[in-house]
Amino acid sequence: MRAIKNKDLNDRRSTANDAKAAQLQAYRAAIAAAAPTREARQAERLAIAEARDERRAERERVKLEEQNRIAAEAAEREAAIAAAARAETEARELANKNRIARVLEDEAARKAERDRRYANRKARRA
């Protein structure tokens, strides 16, 4: 025959409490066993995060250097363009001054030639 199990409320409560205590003890044992590997994983994650931050800082530094280099090259190009424009303007002004000087010299030479011819004509008449 079967044994009849007659469990009352107190027996069920004590069994449930024992089961909960066993689960809690197993959980604490699992945490204690996993602590060294957890700390190692955490240290590894921290190292990875630091390396990531270093790489990001390096990328930003390189990007900043590149932007500064590009800005410096642009400033050099603009300075060279301005210098070339200034040189061209000065050359144009010098050419205009030379042309004006030649015109004045030619005018003076024409007047001198006219005066010489006039003087020769006067001399022949006198």
Rank of each mutant, 00 (worst) to 15 (best):
M1N: 11
M1T: 15
I4D: 11
K5V: 13
K5M: 09
N6G: 07
D8V: 01
L9V: 09
N10L: 07
N10P: 04
D11K: 11
D11S: 14
R12T: 06
A16W: 03
A19D: 05
K20W: 12
A21D: 06
A21W: 03
A22W: 02
A22L: 03
Q25I: 03
Q25C: 07
Q25P: 01
Y27T: 08
A30F: 02
A30N: 05
A30W: 02
A32I: 01
A33H: 05
A35P: 02
A35N: 07
P36M: 02
T37S: 13
E39K: 10
A40T: 12
Q42E: 14
E44K: 03
R45T: 03
A47Y: 00
A49L: 04
A49E: 07
E50T: 01
D53M: 04
D53I: 00
D53Q: 07
R56Q: 06
A57L: 00
E58F: 03
R59C: 07
E60I: 03
K63M: 06
L64T: 14
E65W: 01
Q67D: 15
Q67W: 08
N68V: 09
R69T: 06
A72T: 05
E73R: 09
E73S: 05
E73L: 10
E73Y: 12
A74Y: 06
A74E: 13
E76D: 12
E76L: 15
R77C: 04
E78I: 00
A79D: 02
A80P: 02
I81P: 05
A84K: 02
A85M: 08
E88N: 04
T89L: 15
E90D: 05
R92A: 13
R92H: 14
R92N: 10
L94R: 15
A95C: 00
A95M: 01
A95Y: 01
N96H: 13
N96L: 14
K97Y: 07
K97N: 14
R99S: 09
R99M: 05
I100A: 12
L104M: 14
L104F: 08
L104A: 12
E105D: 11
E105K: 05
E107V: 04
A109P: 03
R110Q: 10
K111H: 11
K111I: 09
R114S: 13
R116E: 13
R116D: 10
R121E: 15
A123S: 12
A123N: 08
R124H: 06
R124Q: 11
R125A: 13
